[in-house]
């Protein structure tokens, strides 16, 4: 079942066309991978779907209805959660305050923060992800990169009802931490969420993806289901096919010193 659909979406910043005619659909219980090199338009795409920027052409359909998200809060309230590359965590705030930032639990007449409940939920959600933070009052800045990533993902999944967007979640992580994150991507998919997984690593994408879209200079250059692809083909397409062959040819030329070649 398709939850979110983009039809010919474009975005211009003045005379710069960051995104042109991008179509994409996110289905329930599937991982849609968006791949692309730096500057391909991945970030712009996320910003449109998460409500930070408005698209300038085409349409975004949520459950078949055309929508324009006015703000991240608007997108969130319609069930679209985003985990940003910079994680959107305030470094000096404690772990539990960050976890519930923007979605604080309150109780009583004075709408006091329900700190006990928030700490309890935060601890249990984090332990589900395999992260143990002994003191939830510690500032987020004191956690490791992988732990911070997990806090951000656990938060998005706990609050993000239907679609979760992951912006390069494995970019800054080691092999083991990436594995943890990818496992969580699969968990989110199996829980019936639609996942948009943004990455420039075709190996990570192929491990979890159902559907693959490659962006290049703001346009879609490949849009294929898993059945139609192999990892090698995906990696080659991602690297730009012919360009990669050319590059390897060039590098081979450089690597061979001229005197031994003659």
């Amino acid at each position: 079942m398709t939850i979110l659909e983009l039809e010919n979406v474009g975005k211009s910043y003045g005379n710069v066309h960051a995104l042109r005619g991008v179509s994409l659909s996110v289905r329930q219980g599937e991982v849609t991978c968006v791949l692309g090199d730096n500057g391909a338009g991945k970030s712009t795409l996320i910003k449109i779907v998460s409500g930070l920027h408005a698209h300038t052409s085409g349409s975004v359909l949520l459950d078949g209805q055309s929508v324009h998200f006015g703000s991240p809060r608007d997108a969130q309230s319609q069930g679209i959660a985003t985990v940003y590359q910079d994680l959107a965590l305030a470094p000096l705030m404690s772990v539990w305050r960050n976890f519930f930032l923007g979605n604080e639990l309150r109780k009583g007449f004075l709408k006091t923060l329900d700190i006990a409940a928030m700490k309890r939920i935060c601890a249990s959600e984090l332990s589900k992800m395999g992260v143990s933070v002994p003191d939830l009052d510690r500032p987020v800045a004191s956690l490791s990169g992988g732990q911070r990533q997990c806090v951000a993902i656990a938060r998005a999944i706990y609050f993000g009802a239907r679609v979760i967007i992951l912006d390069e979640p494995t970019a800054a992580l080691g092999v083991k931490q990436s594995g943890v994150v990818l496992r969580y991507v699969v968990k989110a998919r199996d829980a019936g969420l639609g996942v948009i997984f943004i990455t420039h690593n075709p190996h990570h994408a192929y491990l979890v993806g159902n559907h693959f879209v490659i962006l290049k200079l703001g346009r879609v250059v490949l849009d294929a289901h898993r059945d139609e692809l192999t990892l090698d083909r995906l990696a080659a397409e991602m690297a730009g096919g012919d360009e990669l062959a050319e590059l390897s040819h060039e590098l081979r030329g450089v690597a061979v010193p001229p005197d031994t070649a003659s």
């Binding site: 930070l52 703000s71 000096l92 705030m93 519930f100 930032l101 923007g102 309150r106 006091t112 923060l113």
Partner: peptide, 25 residues
């Protein structure tokens, strides 16, 4: 320390972009 607004105050001062991204006004 005990209200949602206080949480928002810490967040907009700590990282305004992050705060906006998670829906803090």
């Amino acid at each position: 320390l005990r209200t949602r607004i206080g949480n928002w105050i810490f967040a907009v001062g700590g990282d305004a972009a992050a705060a906006r991204a998670v829906g803090v006004p």
